[in-house]
Design a protein around this nucleic acid. Structure first.
Lengths: 339, 339
DNA sequence: TTGTATGCGTTATCAC
DNA sequence: GTGATAACGCATACAA
């Protein structure tokens, strides 16, 4: 193994000078720098991270603490975003999956500390409040898809309010006025936010939202409850004044709206427009006509978390901030203009 | 920061003794051990991995090199399995996603080396041959869901041959004889293996597989091709001698079989039995009747990879081996006995 | 069973 | 601008 010393000896300078070159310390003459660079190249010297870590008490590793986000189809995109951004900075990712267990989480904070990770990201599967207590962890910390009650950390969240607005606005612009809603469970934070956004879109359009067309809480955090959306949709579609469009709490619900519509002899989008939420690729693959939906920007949120961490070095001590990421409309073929 | 020394001083023993306790060296009296343990707890001491690493030139970190496995709904379960097993051993996971890019992969191997990861796992999204060249990486290496042409590494693979056997056998045992198949793309290794297994089941049952009921290559690695399965199913179902059951290459195809059946006025499972492959939770949530399928044991495969790594310490130098993991039958409601 | 001395490769401090 | 020296926290070898 080639060490700093070897390079120094070979280049005829002191170890410290080599260290300066390696760390881009400006206080080295260009000639010396070039000389050392050559020698590093020639000897194929690779810095020993362990030794460096020991001195600096920090590493270029970022710890990602998640409940199940790293292992769940819905939210792995956060991990991808984090990784993609990290790679560009030459940093690496240590992943911790707590499975929602506080004890496991505590253990992982210890692991993070002993690995001297330089920063941590806390991400959850659902958009929600989360009470982090990173015992003894004093490096930059960013939360993704969740937030601390006291807002003491920088936070990246999907703009669900605006997402709800986007869903409704799209349908309203197409001329729909009787719009049904099959929402997620009320315990999910996104539900209320999106509802507010939707009402705002109605108000802007000078339209009135018929509360009786709202089917509440069709799906909770547990997949088993899912099928109630099918019943909800059937209730909506068997009304004499059935809606011309349905807003779904997520893409999975949309699948059931399709099924219910087909059951009623209705065609999407000719007789019924459907708009989803999430934009999961699997549903684009399955559904025909392809589902118009609003995307949950998980990848972007992951990237943004890394950007924030990078920025924290330069702006240490500034107050924590919530960053809302736009949920873009993805237009496909499941919504059509009302004649 | 609390160090070994602090604990030692506080406990009234030498640093080395504390080191022994931390590393579970048996040569410590139970009383001393307990005393030290208490003090570690009290001071919230966390070992400095950097220092340890510098001495031992290896870490308890395992590197996971994947193409897209860590970020893809279908195969994240491998990562979960790896993590779950790793946590039990108190080891941690460094994740590298190459996105299939060789250059990125090479970079990550360098990262693994400089982090002195103690072992590596290479996993791919699809069951396939994969040409790893872990430049300069000389620690234990296990492959999951993929294998080297020369079989020079320990490998964990799903037993696709047996999976195909299981699918067919289930239907045959229920009395079905006219069985249709909508298979995956032929370029996928699993396709051929499962076909072989299926034929074996037919042979064992003394039945004959009608080659004309095989719809080949309905789906490849790209989700966009998916919808051809719908057409394939329709072809099968419009035959005068239509099959009483259909074997699917995966659960996603089954969704389309359901749709095609409904189109033809056929009910699952009364008029048509359907069996899937993969056992993705999302499809259990969506489909009614719930899909009988054969599970891809990704979680188990991840666990097994870790077990193998652990075993490699004790059996260094033994020849590499392929380990096949059983694909278990998951019976739900989409197949019924033929009257 | 327990303790002491030494050095891993790097960076920080402070001198020149 | 450069270099000598010390220290980071731990495990190894060896001694007691």
């Amino acid at each position: 193994m080639v060490t700093l010393r070897d390079v120094a000896r070979s280049a005829g300078v002191s170890p410290k000078t080599v260290s300066r070159v390696v760390n881009d310390d400006p206080a080295v003459t260009p000639e010396t720098r070039e000389l050392v660079r050559k020698e590093i190249e020639r000897l194929n010297y690779v810095p020993n991270l362990a030794a460096r870590m020991m001195r600096t008490a920090t590493s270029e590793v970022v710890g990602l603490m998640t409940d199940v986000v790293a292992t769940t189809p819905y939210s792995v995109e956060i991990v991808r975003g984090v990784q993609s951004a990290l790679r560009k900075e030459g940093r690496t990712l240590l992943i911790a999956n707590t499975e929602g267990d506080r004890q496991i989480e505590a253990g992982y904070w210890r692991t993070f500390r002993s690995h001297k990770v330089g920063a941590a990201i806390v991400a959850t599967m659902f958009h929600r409040e989360y009470d982090v207590s990173p015992e003894g962890f004093d490096k930059p910390l960013v939360m993704v898809n969740c937030f601390a009650a006291d807002n003491r950390f920088d936070t990246v969240l999907p703009d669900d309010e605006e997402g709800g607005y986007t869903q409704a606005k799209h349908l309203l612009q197409l001329g729909h006025r009787r719009i049904g809603v099959v929402s997620l469970h009320e315990a999910i934070r996104a539900t209320g936010l999106r509802h507010r956004g939707m009402l705002r879109a109605f108000a802007e359009a000078g339209a009135n939202f018929d509360e009786s067309l709202l089917e509440r809480g069709a799906v909770g955090p547990f997949p088993d409850e899912t099928f109630v959306a099918y019943e909800a949709a059937k209730r909506l579609l068997s009304r004499p004044d059935r809606p011309t469009a349905i807003i779904c709490g997520n893409d999975m619900l949309a699948v059931q709206i399709y099924a219910a519509a087909s059951e009623h002899g209705l065609t999407v989008p000719d007789d019924l427009s459907v708009i989803g939420f999430d934009d999961l690729p699997i549903f684009s693959a399955i559904l025909r006509p392809r589902l118009t939906t609003v995307a949950l920007p998980y990848f972007r949120m992951g990237e943004m978390a890394v950007d924030l961490i990078a920025g924290m070095k330069s702006f240490a001590g500034r107050p924590a901030k919530q960053h809302l990421v736009e949920c873009p409309l993805v237009v496909r073929e499941s919504c059509r203009p009302l004649a």
